[in-house]
Simulated assay, not measured.
Amino acid sequence: MMALKTAMALAAGILLAGCASRYTPTPVATNFPTTKQAKLQAAYHWGVISDNIEKSIVAELKKSPPRPVFLNEAREPTPFQRALTTQLTTSLVNDGYAVTRSPAGSLKIDMDVQAVTFTANRPQYRYHGERAALASGVWVLSEIEAPLLAGVAVGAGAWDSYDWFNAQFAPGATPRTEIIVTVSVSDQFRYVARSTSAYYVADSDRILYGIVDPEPDEPKLTRLFKVRGDM
């Protein structure tokens, strides 16, 4: 019986391989390996972004002789851009860098925030499986390669491993809004440092990142009638 199952599996594999097209007019669409991308949901998260940007910039600035820096803020900054510029200024000053109020003779720090909108109802991929209670305070996640049991008592209660296991995932569907943040440090001749990163944005907070959705079209309340014949 086992030999029969093995032979059938091999035959199925050969059949599937034979069905694969050897030539296509365009590349076959495939998925990227699973990755994670942070979702911005609070002003505190903006500070985390600022700290990461400052660390990457400082690492590059240390490779050259020290020079003052000037943060070139946008003429009409969004709430996000204003906060990021303020927090980055604070971090650089606290780290001992000379942040000038004039661009003359300074390295210029430019910040570009590109907001992009994808289609609604994007899929959200998480761990496959559902929780089931084995006993009071003991849970099992089914349909996972190595079922994870929880029954660790913490204080007067039990630790629900299902919630712990999924706490890393942002609630709700995958946002359709993302931002790409690029910070550049340059003089009139070259780029000294550059940092680019992407983040999810809560769709309800789009206005904070400069995305203004158009007003819905109001229904027309008037109707035209064409009169024919003599009155």
Results as ranks from 00 to 15, higher is better:
2 M>Q: 12
2 M>L: 15
2 M>N: 11
3 A>H: 14
3 A>T: 14
3 A>Y: 13
4 L>F: 12
4 L>I: 12
5 K>D: 14
5 K>Q: 11
5 K>Y: 13
5 K>G: 05
6 T>G: 06
6 T>V: 15
6 T>F: 04
6 T>H: 06
7 A>F: 11
7 A>W: 10
7 A>L: 11
8 M>R: 15
8 M>A: 15
8 M>D: 09
9 A>E: 11
10 L>F: 10
10 L>M: 13
10 L>W: 11
10 L>T: 07
10 L>D: 14
10 L>P: 01
10 L>A: 15
11 A>M: 03
12 A>G: 01
12 A>V: 02
12 A>F: 03
13 G>F: 11
13 G>K: 08
13 G>E: 09
13 G>N: 09
14 I>Y: 06
16 L>A: 15
17 A>C: 05
18 G>I: 08
18 G>T: 13
19 C>H: 08
19 C>M: 15
19 C>T: 07
20 A>F: 00
20 A>M: 15
20 A>P: 00
21 S>V: 02
22 R>G: 01
23 Y>R: 10
23 Y>M: 10
24 T>G: 03
24 T>W: 01
25 P>I: 04
25 P>K: 08
26 T>Q: 13
26 T>A: 12
27 P>W: 04
27 P>R: 12
27 P>S: 08
29 A>I: 04
29 A>T: 04
29 A>F: 04
30 T>F: 01
30 T>M: 12
30 T>G: 03
30 T>P: 00
30 T>H: 05
30 T>I: 08
31 N>H: 05
31 N>S: 12
32 F>C: 00
32 F>G: 00
32 F>Q: 12
32 F>M: 05
32 F>D: 09
33 P>G: 06
33 P>K: 06
33 P>W: 07
34 T>K: 13
34 T>A: 15
34 T>F: 09
